[in-house]
Simulated assay, not measured.
Amino acid sequence: MYKQQVIRRIVLCCLLGLLYPFSLLAQSPEVAAHTDTNSIRIGEQIKLHLTATLSAAQFKDAGFKILFPVLPDSLDHFEVVSRATPDTVSQQDLKVIRQTYTLTSFDSGHWEIPPVKFEVITGNGVTDSLVTAPVGIDVTTVAVDTTKAFKPIKAIQTVPWNIWDYWLYIVIGAAAALLIVGLIWYFRRRPKKVPVVHTPTVTPYEVAQQALKMLKEEKLWQQGNIKQYYTRLTDILRVYFEHQFGIAALEQTSEELLQHIKPVTKLNQQRDKLRSILAIADLAKFAKLQPTADEHEDCMVKAEEILEWTRPKEEPVSTPEEVAGKKA
């Protein structure tokens, strides 16, 4: 009795094992390919629908995936015009995933859209393939009745002119003309801006005089900074010449500067003093000459004399009474 129960259990297990693959097969999704028509003329478009039908359990299973095929841009006798993204439709307990391709053909004849393959991935990582059946399409040409006579080519017909056909261009042109006229009127009528002349409150002479005063107070040569002392001294004079007389003194050598001051009468009258300052300064800066204390003081005195000699004359300021007397 015990042996019979054991044998029955073994047979039952074997039957379940045999039926298990069939249960898996019954759960496999269904794939299909169909078109909205099976006959088109050359150049017309056709819709190819790829569908995959899944059970609700398969659709909700995160490990179960079905991969739609990716059609190339060109098939045998067919061209892919566009691709739509897959969408899902519910049908009772089933989920239908659908993707639509738009195709066209320029070859007449009976052609077949080849089978396409879907990839199925189960939760255990098992990969399987499902293939659709081919779809036949008839591509026909435009029917021509050869029994009728050829008709002559029609002459070019002139379309009558209508102003309302060009209303948009007329409006744009009128708006542009009004805008141009308005801009011209505005620029002619607007008040002209008078340039504001800013009178400098500090003259180049005053700047140079103040700079020499500060140089004397710093006592650079007394502290052994001979090169810095003469660099500052000559730069003060060069900046003064540039701002007061318009001479590019900062960009010139000593000899070039002495040549360019000749047209300036006041400055040329101090030529010997300037030459003496520049000569001692060049030797101190470039030849490392150590002038005496008297030479340091003499250079400062000559620089102050050059400033005083070339100082611009100050115009007298007229009082209101003097202006009224001149007018009378």
Score class of each variant (00 low, 15 high):
residue 2 Y to I: 15
residue 4 Q to S: 11
residue 5 Q to T: 10
residue 5 Q to H: 07
residue 6 V to I: 15
residue 7 I to S: 08
residue 9 R to T: 05
residue 10 I to P: 04
residue 10 I to Q: 11
residue 11 V to S: 06
residue 15 L to D: 09
residue 25 L to F: 12
residue 30 E to H: 05
residue 34 H to D: 11
residue 38 N to Y: 10
residue 39 S to H: 07
residue 47 K to C: 01
residue 47 K to Q: 03
residue 50 L to K: 02
residue 50 L to M: 10
residue 57 A to M: 09
residue 58 Q to P: 00
residue 64 F to R: 01
residue 64 F to K: 01
residue 71 L to H: 00
residue 77 H to E: 07
residue 85 T to N: 14
residue 91 Q to Y: 07
residue 96 V to I: 15
residue 99 Q to W: 05
residue 100 T to K: 05
residue 103 L to Q: 01
residue 104 T to G: 01
residue 111 W to Y: 14
residue 115 P to D: 06
residue 116 V to K: 02
residue 118 F to S: 00
residue 123 G to S: 14
residue 124 N to C: 02
residue 125 G to V: 06
residue 125 G to A: 05
residue 134 P to K: 03
residue 142 V to R: 14
residue 148 K to S: 12
residue 149 A to G: 00
residue 152 P to G: 09
residue 153 I to Y: 03
residue 154 K to G: 13
residue 156 I to M: 09
residue 157 Q to D: 15
residue 157 Q to V: 15
residue 159 V to H: 07
residue 159 V to I: 15
residue 159 V to R: 08
residue 162 N to C: 02
residue 169 Y to T: 13
residue 170 I to D: 03
residue 170 I to C: 08
residue 171 V to E: 06
residue 175 A to L: 15
residue 176 A to Y: 08
residue 182 G to S: 10
residue 182 G to M: 06
residue 183 L to Q: 12
residue 185 W to T: 09
residue 185 W to I: 09
residue 186 Y to E: 02
residue 188 R to L: 09
residue 191 P to M: 02
residue 216 K to Q: 12
residue 216 K to G: 10
residue 216 K to S: 14
residue 217 E to F: 01
residue 217 E to I: 03
residue 218 E to Y: 04
residue 220 L to M: 14
residue 226 I to F: 04
residue 229 Y to S: 04
residue 230 Y to V: 03
residue 233 L to R: 00
residue 235 D to C: 03
residue 238 R to C: 04
residue 241 F to V: 01
residue 244 Q to Y: 10
residue 250 L to K: 13
residue 252 Q to E: 14
residue 253 T to P: 10
residue 254 S to L: 01
residue 255 E to G: 08
residue 259 Q to Y: 09
residue 259 Q to R: 08
residue 266 K to Y: 05
residue 270 Q to S: 15
residue 275 R to D: 11
residue 280 I to C: 04
residue 281 A to L: 00
residue 282 D to C: 04
residue 284 A to D: 04
residue 287 A to P: 05
residue 291 P to F: 00
residue 295 E to G: 05
residue 298 D to A: 13
residue 302 K to D: 03
residue 304 E to P: 01
residue 306 I to Q: 00
residue 317 V to C: 05
residue 317 V to K: 13
residue 327 K to I: 15
